[in-house]
């Protein structure tokens, strides 16, 4: 079964699920609305044997990096952080990569959510255990909440960390070590 056939079957139940305009290279890429993330993955796992969750990550599309996010001025190439890029949008994009180990088919699913405090998507905890720490990492780095995750707390940074480092507007506040 090709990715398009799976998409057609899923679209019958989830009309919000569409093909992405700018796909991840060499991956069938779909955009999924936030509210149906969990059910779509449940269906993909149970009906289409997508049993291996590769990656959960996110991108902040709000524009170029903020040099204040670095304690010392970073080695940004000249002109890189100047003008806001044409791609700037006020959204977080949560990216999932999933594989069916039996067939070797790979999929990329994207979920665009408005960029605000307390932005949230449903957690995949329980469907894929691999989501456990990866979602905690995304929460740590972007402050995106995963509803239904039983242990959503910071994982890599300190508890005293201010702000979410991978957000483009992150500003580093000097602490006792700087």
């Amino acid at each position: 079964m090709t990715a398009d056939e799976i998409l057609a079957k899923l679209q019958a139940s989830f009309p919000g699920l569409v093909k992405s305009e700018a796909p991840v290279k060499e991956y069938p890429t779909w955009t999924v609305p936030a509210e149906s993330v969990r059910v779509v993955f449940e269906r993909l796992r149970s009906k289409f044997s997508f049993d291996y969750l590769d990656v959960v990550t996110a991108t902040d599309w709000s524009g170029p990096i903020n040099p204040k996010g670095y304690p010392q001025s970073p080695a940004v190439a000249a002109g890189a952080a100047a003008a806001p890029s044409a791609t700037a949008k006020d959204i977080f994009e949560v990216v999932y990569l999933v594989t069916a180990l039996s067939t070797g088919m790979r999929l990329c699913l994207r979920c665009e959510i408005p960029r605000k405090e307390g932005a949230s998507v449903p957690s995949l905890y329980g469907i894929f255990m691999a989501a456990d720490w990866q979602e905690r990492e995304v929460y740590d780095m972007f402050g995106i909440h995963f509803e239904g995750h039983p242990n959503l707390k910071r994982i890599l940074t300190m508890e005293t960390q201010q702000g979410y480092p991978l957000r483009k507007d992150y500003e580093h506040l000097p602490d006792k070590f700087d």
Binding site: V24, D54, V55, T57, T59, D60, P64, I65, V76, A77, G79, A80, S85, A86, T87, V95, L97, M129, A130, D132, W133, Q134, E137, L166
Partner: peptide
């Protein structure tokens, strides 16, 4: 795995690393 996003500039717009150790140690 490396997940790279470019906005056409000189720097990667976003680079995510899927570190196998990170996922293996969670178990």
């Amino acid at each position: 795995g490396f997940f790279a996003v470019s906005d056409g500039g000189l720097n990667p717009y976003r680079m995510h690393v899927r570190g196998p150790s990170f996922i293996n140690v969670a178990i």
